[in-house]
Each structure stands twice: as C-alpha cells, then as structure tokens.
C-alpha cells in the first residue's frame, strides 16, 4: 500500500492579510479569500503552527483570535520588531510586511 503525501497549498492562495504594530508586538490579520476557506484556516493555521513558521524571526509567543464574522484570524506576534517603533533597527520596524511573510506558509490543500 502506498500513502501519498497530502497536497499542499500556499496560504497566499487561500487568504489575504494586513499587518501592523503595537510596540514590539506585530499583528497579522489573515482573511479568507472565500468564506468557504475560513474553517480550513481555523483548523490549519493555528497559533502553534504560526509560531513554528516565524521561528527565529520573533522572540515571543504567538496568540490567535478568531473573527468568524469577517472570516478572519488575528495573530499577535510578540517580540517581532526588535523593540518596535523608533527603537527598532529593522527596515520593517512596524511589521508592515509580516502579512505577506505569513502568506508564505504552506498548509494542507482544502478538499
């Protein structure tokens, strides 16, 4: 019996996103491109999975909030901005493009 690897899909193909900052914490709002994708995102794009995705790039934990009314998930990435605001030495000191960094994640393709 052979077992085929489940087909993968880039999050970019299922969702869009916008990110911003609050001090040294970045937020990434992840929004399903179609309402039908939302439950799939809830299942596969967990806080733990996102923390793994950003490993080495953030120093703190990841929290997730659900907004089923907007087919959206909100992630808080703590310690993402080298101190944040004016202290940060990063090009992206306000985490503006962490949105698309999240969209690089690969998850199981929806059926």
């Amino acid at each position: 019996m052979t077992r085929k690897a489940a087909p993968k899909v880039l999050l970019l193909d299922l969702a869009h996103a916008r990110s911003g900052d609050k001090g040294d914490t970045a937020n990434v709002g992840l929004i399903a491109l179609k309402p039908a994708y939302y439950p799939h995102l809830v299942k596969h794009v967990t806080a733990a999975r996102v923390a793994r995705h950003f490993r080495g790039l953030i120093t703190g934990k990841v929290e997730r909030y659900e907004l089923p009314n907007l087919n959206a998930l909100n992630f808080l990435l703590h310690g993402a901005l080298d101190g944040g605001g004016t202290v940060s030495l990063k090009t992206d000191a306000q985490g503006k493009v962490l949105s698309t960094a999240l969209l690089r994640m690969e998850i199981a393709a929806p059926r």
Partner: peptide
C-alpha cells in the same frame, strides 16, 4: 475585502 483588511489593522483582542 479591502475594508476587512483595515478592520484587522493594528488589532489586538478583537472582542
């Protein structure tokens, strides 16, 4: 879709 992007911008606990 565009308005939703703005709603989640700089969002903490949405509730």
């Amino acid at each position: 879709a565009g308005v939703t992007e703005q709603l989640v911008y700089e969002m903490g606990d949405p509730t």
